[in-house]
């Protein structure tokens, strides 16, 4: 019987990380798309760093930073009772940092590709920047939002290096599917590794297929035909 724990943990981690990233990334992407501040290139670079940085490097520094022997780790433990290494919360934080560019970049380019006139028209009609964001900008970049959500979700499912560094391999706490596959292969349980791999393969395929159907307009055509 297959242990579904790692798969469920993976899905839980990906969902929570994606949700947190969506909330953080909308204001961040908005700022990156419209700000003219001089510090912008630096922030933009920092956001993109996880794209090129080896995950182990990121995992290593997070491990060091959140170690209870260090200032930050000790502070979090003392004030909030949070232990971020070898815990699920730590994995969530690491995933949020690691997958940040996958959420921010699609949303940012979505904002940039909208005609500037739309927000200006909204301002002249008397609407605040916040109302313009929620009523005009976001509804018109739905496909960018969806791309961001899916990329982040899929990318978090696939992460390995960061998780291994900061989470380790604790069943039902930090033992996500990608770690489980590695673990099974190491113990020469190829059959189990294959099952986990197939499930991840299927999840990735279904997610990407539904995005393509949605963004390619196939779904809406289908719905229109029915209506």
């Amino acid at each position: 019987m297959l242990d579904w724990g790692p798969i469920l943990l993976t899905l839980k981690l990906s969902s929570i990380a994606t949700l947190i990233l969506l909330v953080i990334s909308i204001p961040l992407a908005y700022w990156l798309a419209y700000s003219k501040k001089r510090i912008k290139p630096i922030i933009e670079t920092l956001v993109s760093m996880p794209l090129v940085l080896p995950p182990t490097v990121l995992g290593f520094y997070l491990l060091v930073a959140f170690s209870p022997n260090n200032f930050l780790g000790a502070l979090l433990d003392e004030w909030f009772g949070l232990q971020l290494i070898f815990s699920f919360e730590g994995l969530v934080l690491a995933s949020v940092i690691y997958s940040l560019p996958f959420m921010v970049q699609p949303i940012q380019s979505g904002f940039k590709n909208l005609p500037q006139n739309l927000s200006e028209a909204s301002y002249v009609l008397g609407s605040s920047k916040f109302k313009t964001l929620t009523k005009i900008l976001l509804p018109n970049i739905k496909s960018s939002l969806l791309t961001g959500i899916v990329l982040t979700f899929a990318h978090t499912i696939g992460e390995f290096g960061v998780v291994l560094m900061i989470g380790g391999n604790i069943p039902d706490k930090t033992r996500v599917a990608s770690i489980a596959i590695y673990d099974e292969v190491e113990s020469l349980n190829y059959a189990t590794a294959n099952k986990y791999s197939l499930i991840l393969f299927a999840i990735a395929f279904v997610i990407l297929l539904s995005v393509n159907l949605f963004n390619g307009g196939y779904l809406s055509k289908f719905l229109d035909d029915k209506a």
Binding site: L118, Y123, V124
Partner: peptide
């Protein structure tokens, strides 16, 4: 701010939402 000025502006490309 634009929101505070009693003006209407019709853009060249209409800028409908």
């Amino acid at each position: 701010k634009p929101q505070q000025r009693p003006v209407g502006l019709v853009f060249q490309d209409y800028a409908l939402f």
